[in-house]
Design a protein around this nucleic acid. Sequence first.
DNA 1: AATTTAAATGTTATAATATAACACTATGTA
DNA 2: TACATAGTGTTATATTATAACATTTAAATT
Lengths: 127, 127
Amino acid sequence: MQTLSKNQQIIFDLIDKSPEPMKAYAILFNVQKKGIKAPLQVYRALDKLVEIGKIHKIESRNAFIACQNSSCQVSKATAFSICEICEKVTEISSASLSKYLTNFKDKDGMKYSKYNLEFFGLCKKCR
Amino acid sequence: MQTLSKNQQIIFDLIDKSPEPMKAYAILFNVQKKGIKAPLQVYRALDKLVEIGKIHKIESRNAFIACQNSSCQVSKATAFSICEICEKVTEISSASLSKYLTNFKDKDGMKYSKYNLEFFGLCKKCR
DNA sequence: AATTTAAATGTTATAATATAACACTATGTA
DNA sequence: TACATAGTGTTATATTATAACATTTAAATT
């Protein structure tokens, strides 16, 4: 359990309390009152937070979400569901899914220990 | 099998003969001699080609690759392997993988017919 | 405690990716 | 023909992300 630097903590706290994924410039706007003025300050903190698994990037949305999975030390096996109407994103933590994907071998017999999976559909509310 | 418009055909042909995923502005640069001058012309063709399943977007790379899977009418269930060194991207077509993911239910019992999966690792050459 | 090293910060500028808005043209179909 | 739909061309601009460089803080080593 790594201790975060000042900027990392500010930005993590913001993302962690957000009910939905946040985009980099929305984060920037929100932390300007705390003295973080430039995009690069935000991106650097985001990079580090992703690296250590505290947040994940939702690639199809260019947005960031706090890790829901307390055991997630490193972002190497991630799965999300994304509602195509309200854009709600949920991290999926399914042991069988991660086991299946971690053990998946392609037709050359190659395994991949790192992956990112994004499911799309309609959430309960939007159906 | 839909017939493509002029710009769509030019851009599809370029991506289809590229050995690696192409980025939008690399595409633009390559088709300028064919009269496609503006980013928007490229993005519009890309959007349509993705929509009809002729190409896929590699979200983690912001790049586009021709569909390798002749049966792919619509981009709704895609899986790729990505080499973290040489950036080679291969579309995975595994019946068991697509069956597993298409039938996957989250803990609320919800199914998702659409997904995108990106595996990361080292390709044969780079290992 | 002093030294050294790695990590993080602050700042300006700019690169790379993507879309808005509007006018016009081609194509299919009733 | 006339109507609708999809595609094109163009300018401008929004959004996302990184380069380069100087400085500061924190941590590890002596």
